[in-house]
Design a binder for these strands. Structure first.
Length: 279
DNA sequence: CTCCTGTCCTGCCGGC
DNA sequence: TGCCGGCAGGACAGGA
């Protein structure tokens, strides 16, 4: 579900809403998500002040005041719901983890499909943590350049679509933003990654950055039930050029009769693109 | 190594 | 109505 822009939006929402709050109580309400919750999760969180709300790829990293960190991944259907102090709250079936803060605010981690993840780690070992060890560069950092991207893609014979979905190539992209970035770079999702030239790689890296920045500015994309942590919808879905738009025209369409955006399946996932504008 | 398939889980939508 | 198949924003393990 949530890709980098949605995760970043949730991270910002948590930071703004909670700030440096202390966890008064932590309650797990199921065995866990994709994997069981870590042993002692509730005890590890209780009494801890959250001193930093970070993000790496699609993971949210909550740094605690004792040098440990709680790592959250929202999977396909995960949501973070923030409940103001004093507001009524009855946990629902899919609220798997509920934190209550000293001021009475609450945080519920809701995940119907349970593809999400909650981990504990030592802050000092985060870089080498299995979630991050092989993760590629942050696309909005200076470490992500066209040159760097090309060096990685050169070793890949899979489609550029599949390569960009791989978190070890670049962190944080998923199905939506890969499709959108490829459209903005005018590159066909069917091209082999290793066949992209230097100029195309530069163009693609720039497209990725622009698409992600615009999506973050719009508060992410709301499909089905994704919400920002404060409950508002994102609105980048209205700016999709190709994603979910099979049969429609892409922005600035140059096709005559026929043409339009098509949907194909690559590696078991939908890809949306324009055959005419993406080569 | 890289690549591909199957799998985890629930909800929703469209067709009959 | 109700039932069923297909699809969904992700990421792993396991085998080729």
């Amino acid at each position: 579900m949530p890709e980098l822009p949605e995760v970043e939006t949730v991270r910002r929402g948590m930071e703004k809403f909670l700030g440096p709050s202390v966890v008064a109580a932590a309650e797990t309400r199921s065995r866990g998500l994709r994997v069981p919750f870590p042993r002692g999760l509730e005890a590890a969180l209780t009494g801890r002040r959250i001193v930093k709300y970070a993000r790496r790829g699609k993971y949210i990293v909550l740094h605690m005041d004792n040098g440990r960190a709680a790592i959250l991944h929202l999977g396909m259907s995960g949501r973070v719901v923030l409940i103001p102090p004093g507001a009524p709250f009855r946990p629902g079936r899919h609220d798997h983890l509920v934190l209550t803060f000293r001021n009475g605010a609450r945080l519920a981690l809701n995940d119907p499909r349970r593809f999400g993840l909650v981990l504990l780690a030592e802050e000092s070992g985060l870089k080498d943590h299995k979630a991050f060890a092989k993760m590629g560069p942050e696309p909005l950092s200076s470490a992500f350049t066209g040159k760097k991207l090309r060096n990685t893609l050169m070793k890949r014979t899979v489609s550029i679509k599949a390569a960009l979905m791989d978190q070890s190539v670049v962190a944080g992209l998923g199905n939506i933003y890969v499709c959108e970035s490829l459209f903005h770079a005018r590159i066909s999702p069917l091209r082999r990654a290793c066949d992209l030239g230097a100029a195309e790689s530069e163009k693609l890296a720039a497209a990725i950055r622009i698409v992600l920045k615009r999506a973050i500015a719009a508060g992410g994309s709301t499909l089905r039930d994704y919400r920002q942590a404060d409950g508002r919808s994102g609105y980048f879905q209205h700016d999709f050029a190709v994603y979910g738009r099979a049969g429609l025209r892409c922005p600035g369409c140059i096709c005559g009769k026929g043409g339009g955006i098509i949907r194909i399946v690559q590696n078991g996932r939908s890809t949306f693109y324009c055959e005419r504008r993406q080569k």
